[in-house]
Design a protein around this nucleic acid. Structure first.
Lengths: 263, 263
DNA sequence: CGGAGCGTTGAGCGAAGTCAAGATGTGTGG
DNA sequence: CCACACATCTTGACTTCGCTCAACGCTCCG
């Protein structure tokens, strides 16, 4: 609940994104709306520096007005808000391929923090460079607008999650969502993915206590729905998980997952 | 819970917005970021038709791809999502001066509905006309981007509400938020406003049952925090309400309320 | 005058929270 | 490679907040 470290990210400068990593974002956009080669290489040419960041580290602080956009390359991070009581609410998960605060107005201050949940590989892109790329490549700009729409749809779904659904339903819904999102960037197999976060993190995401998260996971385990060991989540019965969650793929506006998830 | 009417809005065409009503949006934007006369009159000249709509009526349906933007002139409406179980989650309140789905991509379908909570006066603005106005008047476009940021901040706060706060805290927070938002468009006095919605609506907003909303209101009444009779909400002890809610004005990025609410 | 919708209140229940203790796992330094 | 410390997970016992069901009152409106 409380006691999250507020440490400055350890920035280990790395000269340039390599092929593999730069493709995380491109792959994601291309999957959403096919990207011309010219747009893909414009994105690839954005001069950025990679950095390795430890878990439970603040990437952006509430009150900041960041002048860099963060691109997630590996690992899990989250937008979060802390309450005076010490409680934390996670507002969104930032997965590989996600851009963090591309449209945080230059004027406005952040009313939330961004912190890593696991160890992460991130890239810091100059806000100015990104803006000018988007001006010159409208198709890319359009793709990012779609990403934004998708993010908004996800946060709507999260509100429904905590507002209307039981613990089991919430958990099932989140696990389905993560499967689809991670598949879209090639970070998930057909039936599982790396989930390098704590049960506490899950609780702060779903509005549940860590203890109840644990019990809910036990139910899922006992019902042969999922298996989660050594940071690897394996989904044993996706269709039943989907039914429990009332998970509709449509809201993600994604072409990922269509092959394995029933509409 | 269930049983919401899905009726087509009764559209009573009215030739043109009159001075009073067209000022709702302009007043709101001007309060956020001072608007030049040329921008104000561009907005005022958007040709629109007013319509009176009854309570519990769908303005937009899940799955629609609307080609008109709705401007709220009077009354309360809401974005909502319905669950297979019949439960409803309200995602946002639409108050006078609010534009409804100005950036629903032409491509995407709505994954939620928009329905009136009270009787409303609304205007339907052609999406094309609005877009062209925004192209020609960048200051207005900028103001709408700020509105968008504000809406996002509100929905983040709502997630915190249902995820972290007790019933009393949630309710207090919502009542504070509505006070500030309604003041920004001149629909609230210093200590109260018209709140023409049902306790069920409040419950669907806050993730509470209607019965528990009622009990929570009783507590507030007994503690001389608020009084709510005949659709008029009167706030008796704003500062205590604010403390209970841990309500911070900052997140609204608004200049309204600064005179009466402590930062 | 009757009905419908909304508000109010009580009683009982159940889901999730809290507290606490022990088990398991992981990373670090010697 | 081991030992130790610390974080995380797991489970039990108990509490509590909010839900459900149900009855009744009020108010508005036809």
């Amino acid at each position: 609940m409380s006691g999250f470290k507020r440490v400055e990210p350890i920035r280990i400068p790395v000269p340039q994104l390599n092929q593999h990593h730069r493709h995380v974002l491109i792959r994601k956009l291309d999957r959403l709306i096919p990207l011309a080669e010219i747009d893909a290489s414009a994105l690839a040419n954005l001069s950025v520096g990679m950095r390795q960041v430890g878990p439970r580290t603040d990437l952006l602080h509430e009150g900041d007005t960041p002048d860099e956009v963060i691109l997630m390359l590996d690992g899990f991070a989250a937008r979060c808000k802390f309450q005076p009581t010490g409680k934390r609410q996670i507002l969104a998960h930032l997965l590989p391929g996600d851009l963090c605060e591309p449209d945080a107005g230059y004027l406005s201050r952040l009313d939330f923090s961004v912190c890593t949940l696991s160890a992460c590989m991130v890239a810091f892109i100059s806000r100015r460079a990104l803006a000018s790329t988007l001006e010159r490549y409208p198709a890319t700009a359009h793709a990012l607008r779609l990403v934004k729409l998708q993010e908004e749809a996800i946060s709507r779904e999260w509100l429904v999650n905590v507002g209307c659904r039981s613990a089991l339903e919430r958990m099932a819904h989140l696990l389905c969502e993560l499967l689809v999102r991670l598949q879209a960037v090639g970070f998930a197999t057909r039936d599982g993915y790396g989930l390098p976060i704590t049960q506490q993190d899950l609780g702060d995401t779903l509005g549940l206590s860590n203890v109840h998260v644990n019990r809910t996971l036990k139910v899922m385990r006992d019902q042969n729905l999922v298996e989660w060991r050594g940071r690897q989540l394996k989904i044993l019965d996706l269709s039943r998980l989907q039914v429990i969650a009332a998970f509709k793929l449509g809201y993600l506006h994604s072409t990922a997952g269509h092959d394995i998830l029933a509409q």
